[in-house]
Design a protein around this nucleic acid. Structure first.
Length: 586
RNA sequence: GUCCUCGUAGUUCAAUGGAUAGAGCACCGGUUUCCGAAACCGGUAAUCCGGGUUCGAAUCCCGGCGAGGGCACCA
C-alpha cells in the first residue's frame, strides 16, 4: 500500500506497463494521470488521444487495448474500476475499500512526512525572502515575500529538502549617512529602547529632512557615509549598533508571524566580495565598459542585448546587481546550494532574469556547477479602489499595525460568535485567527496576480478563508472531545467500508492531498494547496452535515471516526505547510 | 517606443491543453426535537474582441483593445 501514496504516479507506472504489453510504443505514449471529473472517475489518463492521432488510429480502440491489459493487472483491479469514456479517456474509479486501506496506511503526520520526503531528498535549497531594509519599519509591502517565502520553505522541507532561510537585508548604502548625522544629534534613547525601528526610522526621516533643507548638513551626512565606507572604527561601531537594533525590531514581527531565519546575510556581508565579481566577469569577457559603467549584455537575448545589467556604476561603486552576483557565488560555495529561490515582487523580474543569465555564463566559464534558480515573484496588494493599499494618511501601512488590527478585529468576531470563552483563551485565539487570516488571504491568491485586501473578506467564516478552515478543524476536534477513550480503540479493525456519497467524497478528497502537494511544490504556488484545503474543509462540512459520526452501528462509527481523524490530519499538515496554526476550539 | 504581468458571473477569486468553466459575497429558496447553523443543500449569472494551431483552447501562437509594471547607474 505504501507505493500508493501518490496515486497518480502509481497509475502512471501501471498504465505505461499495460500500454507496453498492448504493443504501444511507450516512448510515444503519455500516461500522465490527472484528477478526473468525479462523474466519470477519480483519476484519468488521456494519452490514448494524442497517440492515436499520430498513428491515425481510433483512440477508443487504443484506449480499449490498454484497458484490456490493465484489467489483467491485479495491482490495479484490486483497487479500481476501469472505464473508457468520450473520445478515449481512460478513467479509474477507486473502490471504497481502497480508500479505507489508504486512510489506514497513511494515518499519521510522520507517515506522510516519510512518504513526501522522497520528492526532494538530497536537495539543498537557499530561500531568500523577506529582505527588508534595516533602520526602517516593515510595511504591508513586505508581507507577501515573508508569507510566501515561509510557505515555500516549509513545503520544501516537508518534501525532504535541506532548506536554508536567508534574510538578505538591505543593511548598507547611502541612507546611513543621513541616519548617522541625526542619530548623533537627535537620538531619544528611551524611544530607541521601546521601539528601535520606529526611532531609527524617525531619525532617518529627520536626517533626510535636515539634509535637504541645509547644504551643510548634507555635506556632513556625506562625510558620515564616507567614514562608514572606509571602515572607520567609530562608524562601524555605530553601524553595528543600528544593525543589531534593527534585526531585533524585525524579529518582533517575524515572531508574530511565526517565521525564523537561519541567517541574515545582508548586502553588507557581500561588500568585500564584489571585487572578485568584477575581476571574474571581466576575465570571462562577460562584462564591458559602457558609458563609464561596467555592464553585462546578452547579445542573444531580444531585450538584454540592449538593456544593460550594470554591475559597477560609473562612480566606481557597486550596486545590487553586484551584490546579488556575489550572493549567488557564496550560496554556491558556502551552502553548496543545488537550488536558489528568491522571493520578491514582480517589478524585479528583469533584474533576476539578467542575474540568472549572467550567473549561468559566469559559472559555466569558471567551471562551476550552477544551482537551479527560481525568481518567485508576486503582485501587489490593492485596496478597494484597485490601487496599492495605503493608510488614511497616505503612508504605507506598517506591518505591525496591520497585525495588531487583525488581532483586534479577530477578537471582536470570535467573541461575538463564542461568548463562553475565557478572556485569556480568547486572546490567544484572536491572535491565531487574526494572523492566520492575513497570511491566508495572501497565500490563497495566485501570487502572480494582484489581489484586493478586504478585512471583511479575510475574516469571514464563509468562503476560502482562514476562519472557515480553522472552524472546520475545531469542529472535528469537538467530536473527539465527546468520545469515550474506548471509541478510538482499534478503529481500523472495527471500521466497515464507506457507503454514503459524502463519506466517499471526503475520503477521495483526503487522498488528493498528495497531488495538491505535488502541484504546489512544482509550481511554487501556495494557492494551489490552499484551494485544495478549502475543498477538503468543504468536503468535511458536507459530510458532517449529512452523516452523523457518533452513531449506534459500531462499524459505521469507526469508519466515520477514521474519516474525521484523517481529514483533520490533512488539514493540520496542509495548514502548517502554509505557516498557519490550527486551534482546538474557537 | 519596447518588453513583462494581467483581462473569467454584478463583485472578489479558481481552473497542471481535456469531458457540462468551479467557488465566496450579493440576490432568490430550503435545512436544526440530532456530534458547534461560525454550518449545510439548491437556484439565477461569466472566459475583453478578431484570427490561428489542436482530436480538444480560459489556457498555446498572431493582431487589436484595456489595466498595471520594467526599460543606464535605487533595490
Amino acid at each position: 500500500m505504501q507505493d500508493w501514496f501518490d496515486v497518480a504516479e502509481k497509475i502512471e507506472t501501471r498504465t505505461l506497463a499495460a500500454a507496453g504489453k498492448a504493443g504501444i510504443d511507450q516512448a510515444a505514449f503519455s500516461a500522465e494521470a490527472r484528477p478526473a471529473d468525479p462523474r466519470f472517475g477519480d483519476v484519468q489518463v488521456n494519452g490514448a488521444l494524442p497517440y492515436a492521432k499520430r498513428l491515425k488510429a481510433n483512440p477508443r480502440e487504443i484506449a480499449q487495448k490498454i484497458v484490456d491489459e490493465l484489467a489483467k493487472d491485479e495491482a490495479v483491479t484490486d483497487v479500481a474500476e476501469l472505464s473508457i469514456a468520450g473520445p478515449g479517456f481512460i478513467n479509474f474509479r477507486f473502490k471504497p475499500s481502497f480508500y479505507l486501506d489508504w486512510l489506514n496506511d497513511f494515518s499519521t503526520e510522520s507517515v506522510y512526512r516519510e512518504a513526501a520526503a522522497k520528492l526532494y531528498a538530497g536537495e539543498r535549497v537557499v530561500v531568500d525572502y523577506g529582505s527588508p531594509n534595516t533602520a526602517k519599519q516593515m510595511h504591508v509591502g513586505h508581507i507577501r515575500s515573508i508569507v510566501i517565502g515561509e510557505a515555500i520553505c516549509r513545503l520544501l522541507e516537508f518534501c525532504g529538502a535541506d532548506v536554508t532561510r536567508d534574510n538578505h537585508i538591505g543593511d548598507w548604502g547611502t541612507p546611513y549617512g543621513k541616519l548617522f548625522y541625526a542619530y548623533k544629534r537627535h537620538l531619544d534613547p528611551d524611544a530607541l529602547k521601546a521601539d528601535p525601528l520606529g526611532e531609527l526610522e524617525r531619525l532617518y526621516k529627520l536626517g533626510s529632512q535636515l539634509a535637504s533643507d541645509d547644504k551643510a548638513v548634507l555635506e556632513e551626512s556625506r562625510q558620515e557615509l564616507v567614514q562608514l565606507q572606509d571602515g572607520k572604527p567609530e562608524s562601524m561601531k555605530l553601524w553595528e549598533t543600528v544593525n543589531q537594533l534593527s534585526i531585533q525590531g524585525l524579529k518582533e514581527v517575524y515572531d508574530q508571524l511565526d517565521v525564523t531565519y537561519d541567517c541574515y546575510l545582508g548586502e553588507s556581508f557581500y561588500r568585500d566580495r564584489v571585487d572578485l565579481v568584477y575581476k571574474e566577469l571581466e576575465e570571462c569577457q562577460l562584462a564591458e565598459e559602457s558609458n563609464g559603467a561596467l555592464v553585462v549584455f546578452h547579445p542573444e537575448h531580444k531585450r538584454y542585448a540592449e538593456q544593460p545589467f550594470i554591475i559597477r556604476k560609473s562612480d566606481g561603486a557597486s550596486n545590487y546587481a553586484t551584490t546579488d552576483l556575489a550572493t549567488m557565488l557564496y550560496r554556491h560555495e558556502h551552502f553548496k546550494a543545488t537550488r536558489i529561490i528568491i522571493v520578491t515582487d514582480d517589478r524585479q523580474k528583469d533584474h533576476f532574469e539578467q542575474l540568472d543569465l549572467t550567473t549561468a555564463k559566469w559559472f559555466e566559464k569558471t567551471g562551476r556547477t550552477r544551482p537551479a534558480f527560481d525568481h518567485v515573484m508576486f503582485g501587489k496588494i490593492n485596496g478597494d479602489d484597485g490601487k496599492p493599499i495605503k493608510s488614511r494618511s497616505g503612508d504605507p501601512i506598517r506591518l505591525k499595525d496591520l497585525i495588531s488590527e487583525a488581532i483586534e478585529r479577530a477578537h471582536t468576531v470570535v467573541k461575538e460568535k463564542n461568548s463562553d470563552l475565557p478572556e485569556e483563551e480568547l486572546q490567544l485565539i484572536a491572535e491565531t485567527v487574526g494572523i492566520s487570516s492575513i497570511k491566508y488571504a495572501d497565500l490563497s491568491s495566485n501570487r502572480t496576480s494582484d489581489y484586493v485586501f478586504s478585512w471583511e473578506k479575510l475574516l469571514s467564516f464563509e468562503g476560502n478563508t482562514a476562519p472557515y478552515l480553522l472552524y472546520a478543524a475545531t469542529r472535528i476536534q469537538s467530536i473527539f472531545r465527546k468520545l469515550d477513550p474506548s471509541d478510538l480503540e482499534n478503529l481500523e479493525a472495527r471500521a466497515s467500508v464507506f457507503e454514503t456519497g459524502e463519506e466517499i467524497a471526503l475520503a477521495r478528497k483526503i487522498v488528493e492531498f498528495v497531488g495538491a502537494l505535488q502541484i504546489t511544490i512544482d509550481t511554487l504556488r501556495p494557492h494551489m494547496l490552499s484551494g485544495y484545503l478549502y475543498e477538503l474543509a468543504g468536503a468535511f462540512s458536507g459530510f458532517y452535515a449529512a452523516n452523523k459520526v457518533i452513531v449506534e452501528d459500531d462499524g459505521q462509527k469507526a469508519r466515520r471516526l477514521i474519516l474525521c481523524q484523517r481529514a483533520l490530519l490533512a488539514l493540520k499538515i496542509g495548514l502548517s505547510l502554509l505557516g498557519i496554526k490550527t486551534l482546538e476550539r474557537m
